[in-house]
Design a protein around this nucleic acid. Structure first.
Lengths: 252, 252
DNA sequence: CCGCCTCATTGCATATTTTGCAACGCCAGT
DNA sequence: ACTGGCGTTGCAAAATATGCAATGAGGCGG
């Protein structure tokens, strides 16, 4: 582990919250401001950080470029894009693509709703597995042993009145998800937002989950469920693009 | 300057080109692989880098999150988004938002064309000032002395047969841009792509440039120019949102 | 199974770099 | 002009990073 680098990355993470002064950063990281200044200088030289006026630093444009190049490298994102864009245009609602990473779901693509009021999220943001439709899809796709291990490791933070708060209930839900081929988040992650999600597969199995998110005042659960055929069509198209075996009529 | 940090950031930049092995990275940075390994470990701990199989490293998801949070902080991006989205939907062509930074234009937002063949670009990517419509708009908006200084500092790399290759010609073009209120890139940056761009202003002047990009086989120059009213409407709307003084009828 | 090869990983001592302190520089306000 | 607040710099000592050499891990072929 490199201490200087660790400190610099911690600085960067603090700057994600918005511009900051040298003193604020030194306080946050717990080192002398002359040390912080030198780290910032190096970060600036690479455009990870930029000066904003005489006293403030903010994240720099190099991050945008790196992030975008890295996202462009994700094959599942590339394969799924056309189908998900179409789903977004046909339904008018927010479409997310998420993948599994270290006990969480991570949003790796997003197509915005045309409605003025939408769910806040962003690419790169992490979401809990136990109360999101994408999380349920991703875990349900795992072998039972791994499912069990994950279910036991989660903390089941109660986000809303509807949130699943035990491994037992979660595992039962996952059985349902695996059997039906889609998941529902019935305002379990955020009040007033419900989602449906389905898996996108590749040759080796499920790669990612795609979801439709709708504010509850725009569409009730039944209306959202009426969009399931559209979602499943899109995820099947995307799966084919990703090299999954062609779906059989009798499967699922 | 922090040498360890400099090396780590260089690693990250190399990984933007796609996944790499420890040996490749050590070669690229010019240090021993045990040193690289320790830097990678630290980068991994912060999710800037992730393992892919036993031998490869790639950029990590923390970058997506940081980039997106940072982009969300850009006021001009937020102000301009509705108008630019509408422009994109009305015209069906790629819309970019770009800002000025250290002698280059940087793309900070993008709305994709609905056509199958599009101009490749990405958020965070830098573009030359001398041969892009957004570059011309950004420089034309500067005070004459600064315009002059920038014009003299550019290298005028000849990208196509149409590229402006002298400071003299560039300054003349900028006069035109400043007077008309929009700029044209007539296949000067890339063969087969032409663009028009116009400024988006805030209380203190021009903040960014918005453009429409079209492959030449989809629309000839006259057709592209027929979309100017749409572009100018969008940039005026965006400028108002960004707090610019309300435009007068007799201006420009 | 063993041996070989390739690449990742680790412990160690030394070389190098980083660090915090103290002083200085700069700017804005009174 | 003076003061206060914050950015910046030089220095020597402390701390960390570094590369070497050895070891570990995995895969392949005989």
């Amino acid at each position: 582990m490199s201490q200087s680098l660790d400190r610099a990355l911690t600085l960067v993470e603090h700057l994600a919250g918005g511009r900051k002064t040298l003193d604020e950063l030194a306080e946050a990281v717990g080192v002398h401001k002359s040390t912080v200044l030198r780290l910032l200088r190096t970060l600036e030289a690479h455009r990870f950080v930029q000066r904003e006026g005489p006293h403030h630093y903010r994240l720099g444009t190099a991050l945008f470029d790196l992030a975008q190049q890295s996202l462009d490298e994700l094959d599942v994102r590339r394969c799924a894009e056309p189908a998900l864009r179409e789903l977004n245009q046909r339904t008018g609602h927010t479409v997310h693509l998420a993948s599994y990473e270290d006990g969480e779901a991570v949003y790796i693509d997003k197509f915005e709703s045309k409605h003025a009021v939408r769910m806040y999220s962003r690419i790169g943001k992490r979401a809990p597995l136990h109360c999101t439709a994408v999380g349920k899809v991703l875990v349900a796709a795992m072998p039972p042993q791994r499912r069990q291990a994950i279910a036991e490791s989660l903390e089941y933070q109660k986000m809303t009145e509807n949130t699943i708060t035990s491994a037992e209930r979660y595992l039962a839900e996952l059985e349902l998800v695996a059997e039906r081929g889609y998941a529902i988040d019935n305002a379990e992650h955020e009040d007033f937002i419900h989602c449906i999600a389905a898996p996108i597969s590749g040759p080796g199995g499920v790669l990612a989950a795609a979801s439709l998110s709708v504010p509850t005042f725009l569409a009730d659960l039944d209306t959202l469920l009426s969009l399931l055929p559209d979602l499943l069509t899109a995820t099947e198209k995307a799966s084919i693009e990703c090299g999954a075996p062609t779906p059989r009529k009798d499967s699922r």
